[in-house]
């Protein structure tokens, strides 16, 4: 079955000659495009390790068929920093030791970025904990994760405010 699709991945448009409708976005990224930063922890939408942004929203890429996402804009962990400069969420994860083994980390970071975009949690740690509960961390780095998301959000918001002030 020939199923050509087109995806914009980390800002780069790619024409993909998909030959199998069963391929998930996760397996497409990992096994066919060598974007292995996105991890497979459960493959069933139960752990969050495969979280990516699709059209700006965080989703589980393991439960998304690639063919159904023709035309989508995808951001993975490989695409959030600028060159060597880390995204504020990435930097905050290091500063707060928001990980141990690191396997859930790309998913946590993408989820944190998605959460900040959603703007639903504010600076309430309880809301951050709830909204990050779709990302399991077996090492138990949750406290650092929550602190990191809160700090990065404050950082991003401060920068945005400053930007607005400058442009005003």
């Amino acid at each position: 079955m020939n199923l050509p699709i087109s995806l914009t991945i980390n800002g780069v448009r790619r024409e993909i000659a998909l030959d199998d409708p069963r391929v998930t976005l996760l397996d497409l990224l990992r096994e066919r495009l060598d974007l292995t930063g996105t991890k497979k922890g459960c493959d069933r939408g139960q752990c969050g390790a495969c979280t990516i942004l699709v059209d700006g929203r965080r989703i589980n890429s393991c439960l998304a068929l690639a063919v159904s996402h023709d035309g989508a804009e995808i951001v993975t962990i490989e695409g959030v920093g600028r060159g060597d400069q880390l995204h504020p969420v990435q930097a905050a994860f290091i500063a707060h030791d928001g990980f141990q083994c690191g396997f859930c980390t790309p998913g946590q970071i993408m989820s944190g970025i998605g959460l900040i975009r959603e703007g639903q949690a504010g600076d309430d740690p309880e809301r951050v904990r709830e909204c990050m509960s779709g990302n399991l961390c077996r090492c138990g780095a949750y406290q650092g994760i929550t602190e990191a998301v809160l700090e990065a959000q404050a950082d991003i918001n401060a920068k945005n405010t400053a930007k607005q002030r400058r442009s005003a």
Binding site: G45, E118, C131, M132, G134
Partner: peptide, 9 residues
């Protein structure tokens, strides 16, 4: 229900 990621999809 579910998680933020699942609710987004």
């Amino acid at each position: 229900g579910a998680s933020a990621q699942l609710r987004n999809a």
